[in-house]
Structures are given as C-alpha cells and as structure tokens.
C-alpha cells in the first residue's frame, strides 16, 4: 500500500492485507451465491419452493470457520500494534504540546519548533501534552496515532525510515479550526538535524507570564488571538489603552479599553460588545478567573503591544 516510511508500516499493513483479503473473499463469494440463487431460483424458472430442513452440521461449520478466522485476524492486529507500546529506552524524547489549533514540538534543551524535524533511523518518543481539549496526534504515513488528552501522559513512538516531508494531522475534533491544526514532519539526515537543532531558539518568555497562563488555562486564546488575527472575538494585540466602538444596551459608544473595561468584558461579556461582533457568544468567567488574579491578567494585556 505505502512505502516503508516507519518501523510500524510492515506490521500494520500485514494486518490490513490479511483482513482485506478475507473480507473481499467473503464479499465476492456471498454476493455471487446470492446473485446465482436470485437468477436460478426466480419464480419464472422455479415455480415451487423446496422446503429444506435445517442442518446442524452446516450451522456448526459456518459458526466455527468465522470464529477461527476472526481469532487469526485478532492475532495479527494485536501483533502489529504491540510494538507501538514498546518504546526503546534510549529513544530521543520530544514533547508535543497541542493547543487550539497549533502544534509545538519541544526538543531537549527547551528548544521549540512548529515543524517536527527528526533524524532518519532513530527511535523517537513523542510525549503528548494538551493545554486545553483533546487533540489527536496523527501521522498516517508512519501508521501512528494517539490522542493528546489533557491531564494524561499519553505517548507514541516510531522510527522514521525514509527522508522526506509528511503530514501531521489533528485527528480528534477540537473546535473551530480543527482542520487547520496541521504540522509538517521533516525527516532529514542526522547531520542536518544536529545543525538545525543547534540553530533553534530557546522557548519564549511569554509562556512564563502569570497572566498568560491564566488566560490560556481558561481557553481564551481559542477565540482571541495575540497577533492581530480576528478569530471569533477581537484580538488582544494592542487592546490595552486602545479606543473602540462598543454596543451597550443597544447604544453605540466609544470607550477606551482600560483595566475596568477589560474586567467587565471578562466577567460580564455581553454588557459592552465591540461593534461588528455578535453578542451572546462568550460566557461569563465569573468564579473561573478569580478577582485576585485580575491584576496579573491586566499586566499581561499591557505586554501585548
């Protein structure tokens, strides 16, 4: 079916071929028998049905054969899968951070990348972390897939065998931009990989900002970008101190986004709705973001110039 892109392809595809073989055999055989019966015993040619007695021998045979076949299929399916849970101890460790709707890959030494660059012929263990909802780590060409579940330490591993570029999809539905949560997997030689890793910048400071952590935990960035893009709600970039037209009880007024406005917008989001955005989309975060955390959130907004 495919080239031998990873160490799992052979085991998985053996199970595929076996099951498809059995399935196609039965489908063709049973369909043919059915068509033959329908033609041969059509009432024009066969005016009187012959009543047949049930045969226990036949019934035992057609119960036993499927049981044996499914047990064989089960065995190959299991053998193809088991190696996926046996990551070698010396595998390179990569931390996969999934959040709506972006993949980040963290290499040893706190180095982060948006592309999953990996050296050929080296086992790599992907430790899967989600910052919000469930995502799915899926690289079809390598036959690997594992859900990225918040609060759980799921993992998968593989050993790339062919240099090239591959698709990484988010396979578990995660909201608005699920189908855009993609990443590029690049398999390169060990030398090229080492060179690339050395040039990779260390993790951004932003992730350690207290206010950022609070907003991220509450899923704010699903709807509000920090880079000026319009997602569902207005962007946070440059918000603090800017002027906006908002709708308050049906009346348009111009306000300055100060700390009071930001707090109101979090606790009572439908009170002042920015013109051009629908009301009723955002729920109140009263009780979810505590009052004592609010200054940290405001401080974070101030950094988003």
């Amino acid at each position: 079916m495919f080239a031998n892109n990873s160490n799992f392809v052979q085991g998985v595809d053996t199970a595929f071929y076996l099951i498809f073989g059995v399935a196609i055999f039965f489908l063709v055989m049973l369909t043919t028998i059915m068509i033959v019966f329908v033609i041969k015993y059509n009432k024009k040619r066969h005016a009187h049905a012959v009543q047949i007695k049930d045969s226990s021998t036949l019934e035992i045979v057609w119960t036993t054969i499927p049981i044996i076949l499914v047990l064989v299929m089960f065995y190959f399916g299991w053998e193809g899968f088991l190696p996926m849970r046996r990551a070698p101890k010396d595998a390179m460790q990569v931390k996969v951070i999934a959040k709506m709707w972006k993949w980040t890959f963290e290499y040893p030494g706190m180095k982060q990348s948006d592309t999953l660059m990996l050296p050929i012929n080296r086992a790599v263990k992907m430790n899967l972390f989600s910052k919000d909802v469930i995502h799915g780590f899926s690289i079809p060409s390598f036959r690997v897939k594992e859900d990225v579940v918040p609060g759980k330490n799921n993992y998968t591993w593989f050993e790339p065998k062919i240099i090239g570029n591959y698709d990484l999809f988010c396979s578990a539905y995660c909201g608005l931009s699920h189908s855009y949560m993609l990443a590029l997997v690049k398999i390169v030689s060990q030398e090229e990989f080492d060179k690339w890793l050395a040039g990779l910048p260390v993790k951004k400071a932003e992730d350690n900002n207290e206010g950022f952590k609070i907003l991220e935990k509450n899923g704010c960035f699903s709807c509000h970008s920090t880079d000026g893009r319009k997602i569902v709600g207005p962007t946070f970039k440059g918000l603090y101190g800017s002027k906006h037209d908002v709708m308050t009880d049906g009346v348009t007024r111009n306000i300055t986004a100060d700390s009071i406005y930001i707090e109101t917008s979090i606790m009572d989001p439908n009170k002042d709705v920015v013109v051009g955005y629908p009301s009723g989309v955002m729920k109140s975060y009263k009780g979810l973001i505590r009052d004592k955390d609010m200054p940290k959130v405001i401080d974070y907004f101030k950094t988003l110039k």
């Binding site: 085991g11 998985v12 199970a15 595929f16 099951i19 498809f20 059995v22 399935a23 039965f26 489908l27 499914v70 299929m73 089960f74 190959f76 399916g77 299991w78 053998e79 193809g80 899968f81 996926m84 799915g136 899926s138 079809p140 036959r143 690997v144 897939k145 396979s171 578990a172 539905y173």
Partner: peptide, 17 residues
C-alpha cells in the same frame, strides 16, 4: 467486513477518526 479493520487494533489506529 470493514468493521473487522476497526476491531483489529493495529489497523484501527491507522483509520480511527
């Protein structure tokens, strides 16, 4: 018959979702 593909763990991993 395609359900057999989904019952088998190795092949289900490939086609799940």
């Amino acid at each position: 018959l395609t359900g057999l593909i989904l019952g088998s763990v190795a092949t289900d991993i490939q086609v799940h979702d």
